[in-house]
C-alpha cells in the first residue's frame, strides 16, 4: 500500500537570539532536523520526546501551518501547501489538528455547537444552515456529547467534554488525517482514558490516520502502531510500538522508558540519565545525545550516527545500540 503521508528530510530552522542580551546576534535554531517518516492510511504514528525535541513543530509542519526550511511533505502524493491558496484549503479539509488545551482553542462567547458547525460554513459545505446543523449534531453523538449540549458554552462543560468538542470540530470536515498534539495531557487520568478510547473508536469507524504527538509514553503505547523517538530535532529511533517498548535499542529510548514511574517494583534498577533536556540552541557535535549517554564513546563525540535499519521496519541512529537479542530492561508481564 502506498503511504498516505510521506515526509522526507523535513527541516525547520528558526532564527533566535543567541544569548541572554536583547542585542545578541541571531542564530539559526534547528527545531526539526532532517526528519523522514511515512504513514499508511489508517495507521497511528506516535511521536515522543522531551520538551524542545521538535515534536510539536513537526506536527505543525505536516499540517502546512508553516513552511519548512528543507524537505518535502506529500499528502496522498501531493505536496502540502503552506501558502493560503485553493490547494491549501482543500488540504485543510483532509487534515485537522486536535490540540492539547481545549480552553484556549474554543471561543468562550460562542455556543460549542456553533463552533463545531463553523468549519462547514468556512468551507461552504452543505447547502443550508439546517443541513450543517444536522451534520454537526450527528458528530455530537459520535464523540459522546448530549444533543442538549449543542447550545452550551465552553465554560459550562468539563475538561473532557471540551476535548470532545475539539474532536467533533476536527471531524466535521471528514478529514483523513488528524494531528493530535498532546490531546489528553490536560485531562484527569480517568477522563483522559475516555478520550483515548474515543480516539481509537473514531479511528476504526472512520478509517482515520493519526499523527499522535505526546510526551506520555504510557498513552502512546496504547494508541500508536509505530513510534518515532525524537531528540533535539532528530529521530533517534523508529520501530513498531510493541517492539520498541519491549526492546528499545537507543540508549535515550531506554532511559526515557525506565524513567516512567511504575506502580510495580522494577525488575531492574532504574536507568537514570543525568542532565536536563538539552538546549536546542547548543546542539552538541557528533551524536546529539552523547553528553548524557552512558554508552558514549570517542566516536560519538565526533561523528553523528545516521538513522539506519537494524531490522525490518526498525531503525536507530546510534553507534552503539543495545543488542536486540539480549533481554529487555523491563520484561513484559503477562497477566
Amino acid at each position: 500500500m502506498p503511504s498516505f503521508l510521506e515526509v522526507q528530510g523535513l527541516t525547520k530552522h528558526f532564527s533566535v537570539r543567541s544569548g541572554a542580551g536583547l542585542f545578541s546576534p541571531r542564530i539559526p535554531l534547528k527545531a526539526v532536523d532532517d526528519v523522514s517518516f511515512s504513514l499508511k492510511k489508517g495507521e497511528t504514528l506516535g511521536v515522543v520526546g522531551e520538551s524542545g525535541c521538535g515534536k510539536s513543530t513537526t506536527g505543525r509542519l505536516v499540517l502546512g501551518m508553516m513552511a519548512p526550511t528543507h524537505g518535502s511533505i506529500l499528502l496522498d502524493g501531493t505536496a502540502v501547501h503552506t501558502r493560503h491558496d485553493a490547494v491549501w484549503r482543500a488540504q485543510r479539509q483532509r487534515m485537522q489538528m486536535v490540540y492539547q488545551d481545549p480552553v484556549s482553542f474554543l471561543d468562550r462567547r460562542l455556543p460549542v455547537g456553533r463552533q463545531v458547525m463553523e468549519p462547514l460554513t468556512v468551507h461552504s459545505i452543505g447547502s443550508s444552515v439546517a443541513e450543517r446543523r444536522e451534520k454537526a449534531e450527528a458528530l455530537f453523538s459520535v464523540v459522546g456529547l448530549r444533543p442538549d449540549q449543542f447550545a452550551s458554552y465552553p465554560h459550562e462543560l468539563s475538561g473532557g467534554q471540551r476535548q470532545r468538542v475539539i474532536l467533533a470540530r476536527a471531524l466535521v470536515l471528514d478529514p483523513e488525517l488528524l494531528v493530535c498534539d498532546e490531546p489528553v495531557s490536560a485531562l484527569d487520568v480517568s477522563v483522559g482514558a475516555q478520550v483515548v478510547n474515543l480516539l481509537k473508536d473514531v479511528q476504526l469507524s472512520r478509517g482515520l490516520t493519526y499523527l499522535f504527538i505526546s510526551h506520555d509514553l504510557k498513552i502512546v503505547r496504547q494508541v500508536a502502531d509505530r513510534v518515532i523517538v525524537m531528540y533535539l530535532g532528530r529521530i533517534v529511533e523508529e520501530a513498531a510500538t510493541q517492539e520498541l517498548f519491549q526492546q528499545p535499542v537507543h540508549p535515550y529510548t531506554r532511559a526515557l522508558m525506565s524513567a516512567v514511574p511504575s506502580l510495580k517494583p522494577h525488575p531492574q534498577r532504574r536507568l537514570s540519565i543525568q542532565g536536563s533536556p538539552p538546549n536546542p540552541m547548543q546542539v552538541p557535535n557528533g551524536c546529539v545525545f552523547h553528553p548524557r549517554c552512558p554508552r558514549a564513546s570517542k566516536l560519538c563525540q565526533t561523528e553523528r550516527p545516521e538513522l539506519r535499519n537494524i531490522a525490518a521496519n526498525r531503525s536507530v541512529a546510534c553507534h552503539h545500540p543495545e543488542d536486540t537479542t539480549v533481554s529487555s530492561p523491563r520484561k513484559l508481564e503477562t497477566i
Binding site: F14, V16, R17, A20, G21, L22, S24, L29, A31, G49, E50, S51, G52, C53, G54, K55, S56, T57, M230, N279, P280, M281
Partner: peptide, 13 residues
C-alpha cells in the same frame, strides 16, 4: 525578563 530578551524561548518542542 525584558533586559535579557526571551531567555528560554525554545522551551516548547
Amino acid at each position: 525578563r525584558l533586559r535579557h530578551g526571551q531567555g528560554n524561548s525554545a522551551n516548547k518542542g
